[in-house]
Amino acid sequence: MIEFKNVEKKYANGTTALQNINLKIEQGEFVAVIGLSGAGKSTLIRCINRMHDITEGQLKVDEVDVAKLKGKQIRQFRRRIGMIFQSFNLVTRTTVIKNVMVSFVPDLPLWRKLTGIFTKEQKIKALEALDKVGILDKAFIRVDQLSGGQQQRVALARTLAQNPDIILADEPIASLDPVTSKLVMDDFKRINKDMNISVIMNIHHVEIALEYCDRIIGIRKGAVVFDGESSKVTQEILDDIYGGKLEEVKASLEEKSANV
Rank of each mutant, 00 (worst) to 15 (best):
residue 4 F to M: 10
residue 7 V to Q: 06
residue 13 N to I: 11
residue 13 N to T: 15
residue 14 G to A: 09
residue 18 L to S: 07
residue 25 I to F: 05
residue 26 E to G: 08
residue 26 E to N: 14
residue 27 Q to Y: 06
residue 37 S to F: 10
residue 38 G to R: 08
residue 38 G to N: 06
residue 39 A to E: 01
residue 40 G to Y: 03
residue 43 T to A: 04
residue 43 T to C: 01
residue 45 I to S: 01
residue 45 I to W: 00
residue 45 I to H: 00
residue 45 I to C: 00
residue 50 R to P: 01
residue 58 Q to G: 08
residue 58 Q to R: 10
residue 60 K to E: 15
residue 63 E to Q: 15
residue 64 V to D: 07
residue 67 A to R: 15
residue 67 A to K: 15
residue 70 K to Q: 15
residue 72 K to S: 12
residue 73 Q to E: 15
residue 78 R to V: 04
residue 95 T to C: 02
residue 98 K to S: 05
residue 98 K to R: 12
residue 98 K to T: 02
residue 100 V to S: 04
residue 102 V to H: 11
residue 103 S to E: 00
residue 110 L to R: 08
residue 110 L to D: 09
residue 112 R to M: 15
residue 118 F to W: 09
residue 118 F to Y: 14
residue 119 T to K: 13
residue 119 T to Q: 10
residue 120 K to C: 05
residue 121 E to C: 11
residue 121 E to Q: 15
residue 122 Q to A: 13
residue 122 Q to G: 07
residue 123 K to A: 10
residue 124 I to C: 06
residue 129 A to F: 02
residue 130 L to C: 08
residue 131 D to T: 14
residue 132 K to P: 01
residue 133 V to Y: 03
residue 134 G to F: 09
residue 136 L to V: 04
residue 140 F to Q: 10
residue 140 F to H: 14
residue 141 I to N: 13
residue 146 L to Y: 13
residue 148 G to Y: 07
residue 150 Q to I: 11
residue 153 R to V: 07
residue 156 L to E: 03
residue 160 L to H: 10
residue 161 A to K: 08
residue 163 N to W: 07
residue 165 D to Y: 11
residue 167 I to Y: 05
residue 169 A to Y: 03
residue 171 E to R: 11
residue 172 P to R: 09
residue 172 P to N: 07
residue 174 A to F: 05
residue 178 P to R: 10
residue 182 K to Y: 14
residue 183 L to G: 04
residue 185 M to W: 05
residue 185 M to K: 07
residue 185 M to H: 06
residue 186 D to M: 08
residue 188 F to K: 00
residue 192 N to Y: 04
residue 196 N to K: 13
residue 196 N to P: 00
residue 198 S to Y: 02
residue 198 S to I: 04
residue 199 V to F: 13
residue 199 V to Q: 02
residue 200 I to E: 00
residue 201 M to A: 09
residue 201 M to G: 01
residue 201 M to L: 13
residue 202 N to D: 13
residue 204 H to S: 14
residue 205 H to D: 14
residue 207 E to I: 08
residue 208 I to Y: 06
residue 211 E to Q: 12
residue 213 C to Y: 00
residue 216 I to W: 00
residue 217 I to H: 01
residue 217 I to Y: 01
residue 218 G to P: 01
residue 222 G to S: 04
residue 223 A to M: 15
residue 224 V to L: 09
residue 227 D to N: 15
residue 229 E to N: 14
residue 230 S to P: 04
residue 234 T to F: 14
residue 236 E to S: 14
residue 236 E to V: 03
residue 239 D to Q: 14
residue 243 G to E: 07
residue 246 L to A: 03
residue 248 E to W: 07
residue 253 L to M: 13
residue 254 E to V: 08
residue 254 E to F: 05
residue 255 E to Q: 09
residue 256 K to N: 04
residue 257 S to F: 05
residue 257 S to R: 12
residue 258 A to R: 14
